[in-house]
Design a protein around this nucleic acid. Structure first.
Length: 436
RNA sequence: GCGGGUAUGGUUUAGUGGUAGAAUGCGACCUUCCCAAGGUUGAGACCCGGGUUCGAUUCCCGGUACCCGCACCA
């Protein structure tokens, strides 16, 4: 990472802390690596992102079913999914140069491939967090914090089939926390031990997987555009056949140019019928679908668009963060799309006297019913504009002396800093028009 | 996990074996008719635990967190 990239990351981090978006987890106790807490504005931003996703991926469609499954699941779920055996890596360490290697990637387990030093015995690293169900710590009670949300959807496939009788193709979706015991978390929100996912498992007839794959690919591209990610920072990385996970026939990684480099943001995978077949085997329950037209039972195949919430937030912040020089001063602006901005509009009295504050509060009360709004009267008007710029508020309404005379206000655009004068009773329609 | 580095108000930092300044931000008051103006004033910090010492924010050891490299990321 270059110094410049590192600086940019640190600036975003310090802005997040300064303005109450995101804090280090457990900070007053010295922190806990790989955990982050969202402050008031960050929580708002995150909610907006999740709500928008839910709308676009679930409620706007007529083939999607949203669920919310438990984080703790029967450990057999993870045996079936392959996580208990496959989610751990056997590692060996060189006693001389201290490098680590995956044991299953080496041909000779006696000598270090780098320096010819001796290698330690294999150690298993399972990335799943273990926990105990019940008060006693015997082997029977072990469970895991889910390492991904997908399992909850496969496990409920039959429930949704039986209660809603959907026709193929249809999908299940959920947003929820997942946990991975990462060896080295880092790069702010990019790799953390506790994170949130937005996932879809879309079930199709085997012959239709290509069509569904392309459709979801388009949905994901539209999504990235809608939340304001720069097109030139998004890359589609087609995973080569030899690198595909054993269950997948095709996978695209959507990569993003973060300040620290180009890394994965989202994934889109064709998982064949692997999951349903495995869960059927392990549970002994029939997880096939009956096609009325063909009078035929078969196991649907799955297209899985998988999106990380926290990586989304990181991508949004890194594309939104901007600095520009205005009259010799540095202006920091978070160019968030209005649809996800924590605060949509600020209401500011030009002065804190002559009844301007009272008038501004009156407008605040009215608008706050339908908008994410912040009222601010402290310091100079210029300072308040800059404060709103830093938290990405797209519009600022200023109540001045003309307001008292003719019931108009000025409305300032965050990005252009231009102002228009409009009537108070047209504020709502003005905003909704400009939120698109 | 390994190696190296860093840790001082909210943020960015100066500095010291006798417990600390600054800038900026924040609060209050005054002033101000639109982009971090000015004045007065106030609150606010040495990451945690041991050790050495009369005395440790400073030196030593351990821990934690973050940063940089390596490795890892089904």
């Amino acid at each position: 990472m270059t110094k410049e990239q590192n600086d940019r990351m640190e600036k975003i981090l310090s802005l997040c802390k300064r303005r109450g978006l995101i804090f280090q987890g457990s900070e007053i106790y010295g922190g806990l690596a790989g955990t982050w807490d969202y402050g008031p504005l960050g929580a708002e931003l995150k909610h907006n992102v999740k709500n928008l996703w839910w709308k676009r991926f679930v409620t706007d469609r007529d083939d999607m079913y949203g669920i919310h499954s438990a984080i703790l699941m029967n450990p057999r779920v993870w045996e079936a999914s392959g996580h208990v055996s496959g989610f751990s890596d056997p590692l060996v360490e060189c006693s001389k140069c201290k490098r680590r290697f995956r044991a299953d990637h080496l041909e000779n387990l006696d000598k270090c491939p780098e320096c010819d030093g001796n290698l330690s015995g294999e150690k298993q690293f399972n990335m799943m967090f273990k926990t105990n169900i019940g008060a006693t710590e015997d082997g029977e009670s072990i469970s895991y914090l889910r390492p991904e949300t997908a399992g909850g959807m496969f496990v409920n496939f039959k429930n949704v089939l039986d209660s809603f009788h959907p026709k193929l193709p249809f999908g299940l979706a959920q947003i929820g926390k997942a946990f991975r015991n990462e060896i080295s978390p880092g790069n702010f929100l990019f790799r953390s031990r506790e994170f949130e996912q937005m996932e879809v498992e879309y079930f199709v007839s085997p012959e239709n997987w290509k069509h569904a794959f392309e459709e979801w690919r388009g949905v994901m591209i539209d999504w990235m555009k809608e939340i304001g990610l720069k097109k030139e920072h998004v890359f589609e990385h087609e995973i080569a056949e030899k690198d595909l996970a054993f269950y997948s026939k095709r996978t695209i990684d959507f990569e993003f140019k973060y300040p620290f480099g180009r890394e994965e943001l989202y994934g889109l995978a064709y998982r064949t019928d692997y999951d349903l077949v495995r869960h059927s085997e392990y549970s002994g329950i029939d997880l096939t679908y009956f096609d009325e037209d063909q009078k035929l039972h078969f196991t649907p195949h799955v297209i899985e668009p998988s999106l990380g919430v926290d990586r989304t937030i990181l991508a949004i912040l890194s594309d939104a963060y901007d600095e520009e020089e205005v009259e010799g001063e540095m202006r920091v602006v978070l160019r968030l799309k209005p649809i996800i901005a924590p605060i949509q509009v600020a209401v500011l009295p030009l002065m804190k006297k002559d009844g301007l504050a009272e008038k501004a509060k009156e407008i605040t009360r009215e608008l706050k019913k339908n908008l994410r709004l912040m009222y601010d009267e402290s310091g100079s008007i210029g300072k308040r504009y800059r404060r709103q710029d830093e938290i990405g508020t797209p519009f600022a309404i200023t109540v001045d002396y003309d307001t008292l005379k003719d019931q108009t206000v000025t409305i300032r655009d965050r990005d252009s800093m231009k102002q228009e004068r409009i009537a108070i009773n047209t504020i709502s329609s003005y905003l909704s028009e400009h939120f698109q």
